[in-house]
């Protein structure tokens, strides 16, 4: 049994506070949905946890089984068991998925059997094996990119996965396959999931145990799966609020302008 614990996490981009006291505990096998309006900081949460450059952590902690993630380089967070399925997976010309996964330290699979595992994973989610030798995310459709992310998740077998809008850019069939695959992983390997999304359609196959409403940089309400359905009807208006984000004194010169 593993545990991802986020406590009082505060972070800013270019001097603007985006995360303002996030508290969250996810255990093995659990699926936590994080839903909220645009601009509420959901994606920032995923980036800050995964260690993307350009964010300044102002306070708080994030641990996996007691290992503090904040301050570690991204690859060590992956090694500690964290995986981020990105909303917009980056194109890496000339580097194939197999090259990357072979070089990964976040797997106990030896490099000889990685390829067999990749093929098996591709098969499970209907991802053509021809993509395994192609450059990462180059000339892939939105759906293919998300299948590719899911494939990597299946190969690396992390303890916890953050799915940042895994459902965006996917057609119905692809959505069903990738969300079913993640659901299976929670049962087969005890994967803990943080699923960030706008819509509840991701949860037709992937069953959330807990639903959090994220607004103004923090979790403002937590409930059971019914909360997701409720949101479908009522929208986020009730939580969105209008308060202006706090501005901290020093701007981070390395902040990511795209965040």
């Amino acid at each position: 049994m593993s545990e991802l614990v986020v406590e009082g996490l505060r972070a800013s981009v270019q001097g603007k506070v985006i995360l303002d006291g996030v508290d969250l505990v996810v255990r093995s096998g659990e699926v936590h949905a994080i839903m909220g309006p645009n601009g509420s900081g959901k994606s920032t949460l995923s980036h800050v946890l995964a260690g993307r450059p350009g964010y300044a952590v102002l306070g708080g902690s994030a641990t996996i089984d007691g290992v503090e993630l904040l301050g570690l380089p991204a690859w060590k967070r992956a090694e500690a068991g964290l995986f981020l399925a990105m909303q917009y997976p980056t194109e890496v010309p000339g580097v194939a998925v197999k090259d990357m996964l072979t070089a990964s330290r976040a797997t106990d699979t030896d490099s000889d059997s990685i390829y067999a595992r990749m093929e098996a994973e591709a098969e499970r989610i209907g991802f053509s094996a021809k993509f395994l030798d192609r450059p990462l995310n180059v000339d892939l459709s939105g759906g293919e990119k998300k299948r590719n992310e899911t494939l990597q998740l299946g190969v690396l077998k992390p303890k916890f996965a953050i799915l940042d809008e895994l459902d965006s850019g996917l057609d119905v069939d692809a959505l069903r396959m990738v969300s079913r695959r993640v659901e299976e992983e929670t049962k087969e390997s005890g994967l803990g999931v943080i699923a960030i999304t706008h819509y509840s359609r991701l949860f037709d196959e992937l069953q959330p145990d807990v639903v959090h409403i994220f607004a103004r940089g923090r979790i403002v309400e937590t409930g059971g799966p019914k909360l997701a359905d409720e949101l479908e009807d009522t929208g986020y208006e009730k939580w969105a609020g209008t308060d202006k984000p706090e501005v901290v004194a020093t701007a981070d010169p390395f902040a990511d302008p795209l965040a």
Partner: peptide, 27 residues
Amino acid sequence: EDQRFYLESRGVTTADAERLIVGGFLD
């Protein structure tokens, strides 16, 4: 930086990520 982060987020060390990106660039 985004390419490096992508590879690092999969558990590839910073040095290996650079190696892969540079090799891919020349590929």
